[in-house]
């Protein structure tokens, strides 16, 4: 029973955090600064989430660096998301053979 309560509270808080701004922000934001800020948020968030965490994502800095390099290279060439993501995994896996 206590477990159910934990799960309900957890899911409830997580949903409200997502829902409130999404439902109640109905108007276009006028402030140029704030619009610019929101334009940059996704890039900033993803960057902060990726660096340095990506180097800890495979259990070895070296294989992670290889996977990262493969991803950056292919992303720079403009390849689709799935290709880049798989290349990161492939780069990591292949680098593992050389350790």
């Amino acid at each position: 029973m206590r477990l159910a309560l934990y799960i309900i509270v957890m899911a409830g808080v997580t949903y409200l955090i997502r829902m409130i701004p999404f439902v109640f922000c109905r108007n276009k934001i006028k402030s140029r600064f704030f619009r610019s800020f929101l334009y940059y948020v996704p890039y900033a968030v993803l960057s902060a989430m990726t660096i340095p965490a990506i180097f800890y994502s495979t259990g070895s800095y070296i294989t992670a660096a290889a996977g990262t390099a493969a991803a950056v290279l292919l992303a720079y060439s403009g390849l689709p998301l799935i290709v880049v993501a798989l290349a990161a995994a492939a780069g990591t896996y292949i680098a593992g053979f050389f350790l």
């Binding site: 259990g59 991803a71 950056v72 290709v83 880049v84 990161a88 995994a89």
Partner: peptide
Amino acid sequence: DIRNALGIMLYGMFIAIIVP
């Protein structure tokens, strides 16, 4: 080694989104 390689995929996707 497969589990480890899968661990980097999400980040690879983030890179694919922010680099272009």
